[in-house]
Amino acid sequence: MKTNKIAIVAFVLLAALQIYLPASWAIESAETLSYGKVLKFKTIPVDPKDLFRGNYIALNFENTRITVSDADDWKEGDNIYIVLNVDEGQFATYSHYEKDKPRPDINFVTATVKHISRSPEPYVEIEYPFSKFYVEESIAKAAETAYRNAIAEGHNTYAVVMAENGKTVLKDVYIDSKSLTDGLKD
């Protein structure tokens, strides 16, 4: 039957696409996890209301408000390349931004423009792609409390991110030198 043949072809294509899309996310992330370079980003407190949403912790970072020369150059959702200074402890801090992708040997990550403002001076609010840390439901509440207290008490809290040519994958969140999830499991 002709219609059935068309349906079969369409189904095979659909099945391939259904697998391809999530698989490409997974493969890309796995590659970055294996071959990427470790970068540590210091986290800062967020509005407690926004901190915990279901099963992930929303992470906030320093220097996410970036002064730009012309606000009209940007629109929400645009990629913005953040060039970083990396110290010997692998802690990354903001150096400057680029509109075009930097060379692979430069330390940089790709962020997105979340909000644009024209006054008092033109600036963009950026969002790093590693701002959601999913935690297992059974320890989620405890993780949230531990993380919030640590920030409030002035502990050194940071995200460990694997980065390769601008792509990034969040690996873990640390309080001082201890993994947040491992610390809770112990």
Partner: peptide, 16 residues
């Protein structure tokens, strides 16, 4: 299962 798969992958790799 399509929904489950994409949601799971984005959680496993902390995709935003």
């Amino acid at each position: 299962s399509v929904g489950a798969c994409i949601a799971l992958i984005s959680q496993i790799y902390h995709l935003k």
